[in-house]
Structures are given as C-alpha cells and as structure tokens.
Design a protein around this nucleic acid. Sequence first.
DNA 1: GCCAACGTTGGC
DNA 2: GCCAACGTTGGC
Length: 137
Amino acid sequence: MTTQYWLVKQEPADYSWTDFARDRRSAWTGVRNYQARNHLKAMQAGDAVLFYHSGDGKAVVGLARVGRAAYPDSTATEPGWVAVDLVPVRPLPQPVTLARIKADAALRDIALVRHSRLSVMPLPAAAFARILKLGGG
DNA sequence: GCCAACGTTGGC
DNA sequence: GCCAACGTTGGC
C-alpha cells in the first residue's frame, strides 16, 4: 500500500504539539463526525500526517505518522467510532499558518480551506509536500 | 422526506 | 463576541 497523506486538527489548549511530542504517541480518540471517522478508518500504519493547531494557533506545526490503524474508540459510549494511534516525527521549523495556506494558489482547494470544520482530512501528495516545504521541513 | 430549530466548530 | 458553515434532531 502506498503512503497516504492526512491532516488532523487539534485545539492547542486541549492537546498541543508540545503535549504530543512529550507523549511520543497519542491515541486519536473522540472523533464523532462520520466524515472524519471514515478518514480515520482509511489510515494505514506508516501514513504521513500533518498536525494543525486550530483556534489559538491556526497553523500546521508538525509532522507525524500513523502508528496504528483504526481500532474501536474506547472513549465512545456507542459502537462504531474508531481511533488511531499517531506518533510525532518532528516539528516544522517554521509553522505554516492558515493565512499562508490560503494565500498559496496550489493549496486553495484543500479541505482545510474548503471544509473548515472537518477535523481529519486527506491531502493530495502535492499539497502535503507543498506545506512541508513552506514549513522548511 | 422535508425543513425549521438548534448545537458545534472554527475563523475573523 | 459574532457569524458562517454545517451536522443533528424532531415535528409534521
């Protein structure tokens, strides 16, 4: 299976990149949106993931990878919800802000811009590479 | 099956 | 703090 590319959002006040880097691994639980869940289910171990700070931050701040593909979310009170495990790889030398992304012609159609409420989304390989480049990573 | 009301997310 | 987008719920 070829590597797929994703972006996940997190409110830094709830769980920041710093928390993630300290933990070395995080169970991505609590997703309760069907579209986001379907993206979680499509993740494979080893896939590349960008970590985005929503709210106070509004920037892509780090690179991660999928450590474990989808499994039942133990925090859910109803069946059917899933979690994945994510592992931090490295922070981006320079966070890529939402404003920067919106200003980039090659990125104006990504889900982060087009579908701002989605918390787990796929990224085309080219868009993923572009954001990494903008971040100096 | 439609639609109004309402709640949540997230940018500004 | 406000508002747009959008998902969910419930009445009909």
